[in-house]
């Protein structure tokens, strides 16, 4: 214990790191495997798009799967490579809880983008032409007397 670790009165114990590098290499192979699966899905999406009738639902399903695999990769990098998994609970929470903001952040803004697309494709966002109303008044005034 005393051969590593930072000696400071603020820190009550140094987390004992694994003596071997087995866990690191296992994580490396796991990350590589996930990346290869992601690439396979990416190529599958490419081939679906090349085909005659691209199946939009299938493409969306594959894209969702790639997103989940990416989150798994992020978990392994943060937990094992950055050693956050070895820290005490207080440390983990002070980092992870603020990141929950991303749930709102992503949902709200992608929703907004989608709403813009709907406005673009309908005339819901366009204003009725007001120039006609303005022109009608002087015409009526001139006509009456």
């Amino acid at each position: 214990m005393s051969d590593h670790g930072v000696t400071s009165p603020e820190i009550s114990f140094a987390p004992e790191h694994a003596s071997g590098t087995k866990r690191i290499w296992r994580t490396f192979w796991l990350l590589s495997l996930i990346t290869v699966i992601e690439l396979a899905i990416g190529l599958a999406i490419y081939n679906i798009h090349k085909g005659a009738n691209p199946n939009a639902t299938l493409v969306l399903f594959f894209k969702g799967m790639v997103c989940i695999l990416t989150l798994a990769k992020a978990y392994y990098i943060v937990s094992i490579f950055m050693h956050l998994g070895d820290e005490i609970r207080n440390m983990i929470m002070t980092i992870v809880v603020p990141l929950m903001l991303f749930i709102w952040f992503i949902t709200a803004f992608l929703w907004d983008g989608n709403a813009w697309k709907n406005l673009r494709n309908t005339n819901a966002g366009s204003r009725p032409a007001q120039t006609e109303q303005h022109q009608q008044h002087p015409v009526e005034k001139d006509a009456k007397p």
Binding site: V6, E10, I11, F13, A14, E87, I88, N90, M91, T94
Partner: peptide
């Protein structure tokens, strides 16, 4: 290494995150 049970992380004198 055993974490002392009932450690008062927030009562001062030590890092509540046990990190520098």
């Amino acid at each position: 290494t055993a974490i002392p049970t009932n450690t008062k992380w927030w009562s001062g004198g030590r890092s509540p995150f046990n990190a520098s």
